[in-house]
């Protein structure tokens, strides 16, 4: 890597690095497929009213029909079109995973940078809290809390998940903060008496873009799966159309035992594919930032 030219400030250097990295994300095949998949789901969510063959809530079709040209994925026991439900279900699933990812990332970034920047007793306390939450069985905690709150809304569930899943990100972000702190330009900023918020926002944050992004997508992956699991258990809002609630009703109606694979296989595949999109982006960013994981051979 060439040394930054003397005329550029650290912030410009960081921006250039960010741009360089950005331009490298696309060539990376994993990240590219991930982004493609994610965009496809976003498109599906946005165009749901146009693409969806029927209203997802209309119950007037024949009950429990297997796939046919009129109903490509058959109908539910209460006579709804499953394909339409699947398409409309994209919205809440995307929604809740991105919301959860954002909240978690905010908490992780705040705590990670704070702990790394301040050190001393505050760092100790924050890290103790982080390590404790880290070892708590988060899905169990989420199940228990959402069972205490009857019929929790999607936003509530996002908060509950965020509350139990920030420590992973906080730890890596703290480590990266400590690493950046040893760099000259951050040292200089701190020594020149710049206040901590400025240092955090202008010197540290821009230099961990990829780390934060990787963390964001990882949490999104975790959120898609967790929310679906909760809905499958009948927690959260099962009356709204979402992939998890389709699975809940499928399971409740013994879809498995009557061999109605078209009812429970597609929503699971959708969850898995959206999850894979997030995982691929996350792995892609990881490989871009950890040069050793990259194959550069012939």
């Amino acid at each position: 890597m060439s040394a930054a030219s003397p005329s550029s400030t650290p912030a410009q250097g960081a921006f250039r690095k960010f741009r360089e990295r950005n331009s490298r994300i696309l060539p990376n095949i994993k990240a590219r497929i991930g982004v493609g998949l994610l965009l496809a789901f976003v498109l599906l969510a946005v165009l749901a009213p146009v693409i969806s063959p029927y209203s997802p809530t209309y119950t007037g079709f024949s009950l429990g029909a297997s796939p046919s040209p009129a109903h490509l994925l058959g109908t539910t026991r209460s006579g709804q079109d499953i394909l339409s439900q699947l398409i409309w279900g994209t919205r809440p699933s995307l929604d809740v995973s991105l919301t959860t990812g954002s909240i978690t990332m905010l908490v992780a970034v705040a705590i990670g940078i704070l702990a790394g920047l301040l050190e001393g007793i505050i760092d100790e306390i924050l890290m103790l809290a982080t390590n404790i939450v880290l070892v708590l069985p988060s899905i169990v905690l989420v199940i228990v809390i959402s069972s205490y709150i009857s019929a929790a809304s999607d936003v509530t569930i996002s908060f509950i998940i965020a509350l139990t899943s920030w420590p992973w990100g906080a730890r890596v972000i703290r480590a990266q903060t400590l690493h950046l702190k040893s760099k000259d330009f951050v040292k200089a900023a701190i020594a020149s008496g710049e206040n901590h918020f400025r240092v955090a926002f202008f010197e540290i944050l821009p230099n961990m873009f990829s780390l934060v992004a990787a963390n964001f997508f990882f949490t999104c992956l975790y959120a898609v799966v967790t929310v679906a699991s909760l809905q499958f258990l009948g927690l959260g809002n099962i009356n709204a159309i979402s992939w998890g609630s389709i699975l809940y009703w499928a399971n409740n109606s013994n879809a498995l035992m009557i061999g109605a694979w078209w009812w429970f296989l597609p929503p699971g595949l959708a969850i898995g594919l959206l999850g894979a999109a997030f995982a691929l982006i996350n792995f892609g960013i990881d490989e871009l930032t950890n040069p050793r994981l990259r194959r550069e051979g012939p």
Binding site: V224, V225, N251, I271, L274
Partner: peptide, 22 residues
């Protein structure tokens, strides 16, 4: 593994149950 990573446990369980068990 990118895919097995991303699929929910319970759905793999359902699929397992359906394909192998049922």
């Amino acid at each position: 593994f990118t895919f097995t990573y991303a699929f929910p446990y319970f759905w793999i369980a359902l699929a397992c149950l359906y394909l192998i068990g049922y």
